[in-house]
Each structure stands twice: as C-alpha cells, then as structure tokens.
C-alpha cells in the first residue's frame, strides 16, 4: 500500500505516541506510580493516529492532538514535585533524579502534539 502524506504524518504520530506510551509505562512502573488516565489518553492518541492508516477519517487528528496535550499536562502535574526538587536542588517533594526521564517523556509528548497539529492543518488526500 502506498501511503499519502497524511498517512505518512499519521504514521509518524503513531510512532511517537507509541514511544511515549512505552516510555511512560516503563518509567511509571519503575517509579512505583501509575496514572491510568494518562495511560488511557496515550492509548487513545495511538488509536487516533493509527485509524487514518485504514480509514479516511481526518477528525482523528483533533483527537490525537487533544489526547497528546491532556496527557502531557497531566504528566507534568503528576511530576511537579520531582521537577520542583530538580530546579531547587533539593530532595523534598519528589525524586529529582527522575527529572531527565520526565523531560524526555514531556518532549516526546510535545512532539506528538505538534505533529498532530500539523496533520490537522494539512489537506487530506484520497488514498490511491
């Protein structure tokens, strides 16, 4: 199957959102904390990014961008203690050693959200 540019972009989004999901699960389980809402939102984003590969559903880009941004914000709120400690050089509200991983996951989620936004603005072509 030859993919059009929307599908290519969706595939990229799917790859990024899957990466974010895997990283999130590994990180949160390792840190003995897990937010099911974030996980479900990440999964929703993955599904929303996968659907355009099989259907001509352009609205899924809206779902993907919302899913990515909500999960990003929830993840930041969950991690605010560790980030606070990291920037203040203390160990008080969380674990500052987690900060690099938190930044990584946030970065990936941000990329996914931006990619979904770009995909939303693109013209959708018929699959050939």
């Amino acid at each position: 199957m030859k993919l059009n540019k929307n599908q290519v972009t969706s595939l990229c989004c799917l790859f990024v959102s899957l990466s974010a999901t895997v990283l999130y699960v590994v990180f949160e389980i390792g840190a003995h904390k897990f937010n099911w809402i974030v996980f479900m939102l990440l999964l929703t984003s993955c599904v929303a990014n996968a659907l355009p590969l099989f259907f001509k559903w352009d609205w899924t880009t809206i779902v993907s961008s919302i899913g990515g941004s909500v999960s990003l914000m929830l993840f930041i709120i969950d991690s605010i203690g560790s980030l606070s400690d990291y920037f203040n050089g203390i160990v008080m509200f969380g674990n500052p050693a987690e900060a690099p991983m938190i930044f990584t996951i946030c970065g990936i989620l941000l990329v996914q959200t931006i990619l979904s936004l770009v995909n939303s603005f693109m013209s959708w072509e018929k699959t050939k």
Binding site: T61, S65, S69, L117, S120
Partner: peptide, 11 residues
C-alpha cells in the same frame, strides 16, 4: 483550516 484551528484552539 477549520480542522487545524479546532485542534489548535483545543490544545
């Protein structure tokens, strides 16, 4: 455009 701005505003 409408789809894009919907996403952008929602985000």
């Amino acid at each position: 455009l409408y789809r894009g701005f919907t996403s952008l505003c929602a985000v």
